[in-house]
């Protein structure tokens, strides 16, 4: 009963968040200077031509009415039609999702497989040799902008290709080898950042746990460092790490705009940014709303995981 109530509250708050986002994104897209008609028809169109185009897409109606129609369509599962291509927005997104999903999976996998162990090892060894070097490397990893590292990678691998593809994308179902050769460099650029952030978060979380009295108690009982990490540290330090991995996932699913542009990948991020320039309202609205939905849903799952990982915050905690 309590669990059902918890989920009901979470779903209600998620719905409220998404409604707010939908209003914001709709208002923002209509507030952009220069409407769809002006951008599509160019600077020399007559007011009559502009009015005709606006009427064709319903842009001459009141903003509130437009919002109402859009929201009703979205709730039916219809994200609208791209005003540029004439294709349904859903189709346009599905076309670009493989790139974004693949980049996301590779980036998050690297963060989990490399970043988490790296953070644990540097935390356990903190104070010893290599601690300062690890901190410096982590700091650099977090602060190097994507476009700097990405440009550097493009520059270096344009000269020494090593059989890798720079720019362009080959679908996975077409040719696995070619797909990997085209995705490995952009994925590595994203992974660099994801690994650095994850390693740093893991390190801080583990160091926070290592000073807890129950760790001292475990040391006093004669447990080995490995046993202590596996038995007591991992679970107690998991929460912030899970949050950062979720944030990275949601962030990358929203589209890795800079990397997509640098490596000329047909992903979701660059598509939505281009749509903003073309005033392709339906695409912009759908893109932002989907990204927000991903964030909200993933956060909800993390909240649920919190209760499982830490009994003090779960149903046992609520029972007090």
């Amino acid at each position: 009963m309590r669990l059902i109530g918890w989920w009901a509250r979470r779903v209600a708050s998620a719905a409220a968040t998404l409604t707010l986002v939908s209003i914001l994104i709709f208002a923002a897209s209509r507030l952009m200077p220069g409407g769809f008609a002006e951008v599509v028809l160019g600077p020399f169109a007559t007011p009559e031509q502009q009015a005709e185009v606006s009427a064709r897409y319903g842009l001459d109606r009141g903003v509130v009415e437009q919002y109402g129609l859009w929201l009703a369509a979205v709730l039916r599962g219809d994200l609208g039609t791209s005003m540029i291509s004439g294709e349904p927005v859903t189709v346009e997104f599905l076309l670009r999702m493989p790139v974004t999903v693949e980049l996301t999976l590779l980036g998050v996998a690297a963060a989990a497989v490399i970043g988490v162990p790296l953070g644990i090892v540097t935390a356990v060894r903190a104070g010893g040799r290599g601690g300062a070097a690890g901190r410096l490397a982590g700091g650099i990893g977090v602060s190097v902008p994507e476009f700097v590292l990405g440009s550097l990678v493009v520059f270096v691998f344009s000269r020494f290709a090593l059989g890798l593809t720079i720019g362009g994308y080959r679908p996975l179902d077409e040719d696995v080898g070619a797909n990997l050769r085209s995705i490995v460099l952009p994925a590595a650029v994203l992974a660099f950042f994801a690994v650095a952030v994850t390693a740093r978060t893991t390190r801080d979380a583990v160091m926070g746990v290592l000073v807890e009295p129950y760790i001292t108690a475990a040391v006093a009982r004669g447990d080995s460092p490995f046993t202590i990490v596996v038995r007591h540290v991992l679970r107690n330090a998991a929460m912030p790490v899970l949050v950062v991995l979720t944030t990275i996932t949601a962030y990358l699913l929203g589209g890795a705009v800079i990397v997509e542009y640098l490596f000329n990948l047909p992903g979701v991020g660059s598509y939505v940014v281009a749509a903003v320039g073309r005033r392709d309202y339906a695409v912009v609205q759908a893109g932002v709303l989907l990204a927000a939905a991903v964030f909200v849903v993933l956060n909800m799952l993390v909240d649920a995981a919190t209760g499982v990982l830490d009994p003090r915050l779960g149903s046992a905690g609520e029972a007090r």
Binding site: E212, P213, Y214, T216, A217, A218, A220, R221, G222, R231, H232, R235, N236, L309, D310, P311, R312
Partner: peptide, 17 residues
């Protein structure tokens, strides 16, 4: 050979186990 008992009993136990 050794056994330790500390001042703060709840803190000396792993909260997640």
């Amino acid at each position: 050979q050794l056994g330790y008992v500390f001042q703060e009993p709840i803190g000396a136990l792993d909260p997640t186990m």
